[in-house]
């Protein structure tokens, strides 16, 4: 009885020590979560999330104060990647699935309303708006992230966000419908 207990204890102790040593030896340093999340966020510091810049947003998510869906320009892709890092269940989460795969938005300036006040291009985080004082401004769509910053500062409300115009190069066929197997007469 005593030998059995002793041997089991010795075994437990030995294995426990082994495990402890292994944990020390093979310890993998996890990269700081905030840095990783900051890399995923667009990095434009546009402020739409309400936090001071992308770094601030990453810190807020890491502390658990902010949802992973906080970044409108990043859209669904960014939300999914963030969810992967912080370990939120992203398969059926109502927030993420509610974020439909929106098309990328870009700013569009109504030239009739533009007074050439230069407020927008001073505010643009990616220098996507070009123009000069008293001149009509225009948006370089390739550089625009649709962050909404310019829309908010425009005094004449001449800027709106629109989905990026599709070109022949970027156009592709829609995903074909699921075959009949997935159809449900009730739902259809």
């Amino acid at each position: 009885m005593i030998t059995a207990a002793a041997s089991m204890s010795a075994l437990g102790l030995g294995l426990g020590l082994l495990l402890g040593a292994a944990a020390r030896k093979f310890h993998v340093k996890t990269p700081p979560v905030v840095d990783e999340m900051e890399r995923i966020l667009p990095g434009t510091n546009c402020g739409q999330c309400g936090y001071p810049g992308c770094r601030g947003a990453a810190e807020a998510i890491a502390e658990g104060g902010a949802p992973v869906t906080l970044c409108p320009p990043g859209g669904r892709d960014v939300a999914l990647k963030l969810a992967e890092i912080v370990g939120v269940d992203c398969s059926g989460g109502p927030e993420i699935s509610g974020m439909t795969d929106i098309e990328p938005q870009v700013a569009f300036i109504f030239e009739d309303h533009c007074t050439g006040c230069t407020k927008c291009f001073k505010r643009c985080p990616t220098d996507a708006i070009v123009g000069a004082a008293k001149q009509i401004h225009t948006v370089i769509w390739d550089a625009c992230t649709g962050c909404d910053a310019c829309v908010q500062v425009c005094p004449t409300e001449a800027i709106v966000l629109r989905s990026k115009p599709r070109t022949l190069q970027s156009w592709y066929w829609d995903k074909p419908d699921q075959p009949l197997a997935a159809l449900r007469t009730g739902a259809a």
């Binding site: 009949l180 197997a181 159809l183 449900r184 007469t185 739902a187």
Partner: peptide
């Protein structure tokens, strides 16, 4: 029972 279209299958 599965709620599938009957005719084609």
């Amino acid at each position: 029972l599965a709620g599938r279209p009957v005719a084609p299958f």
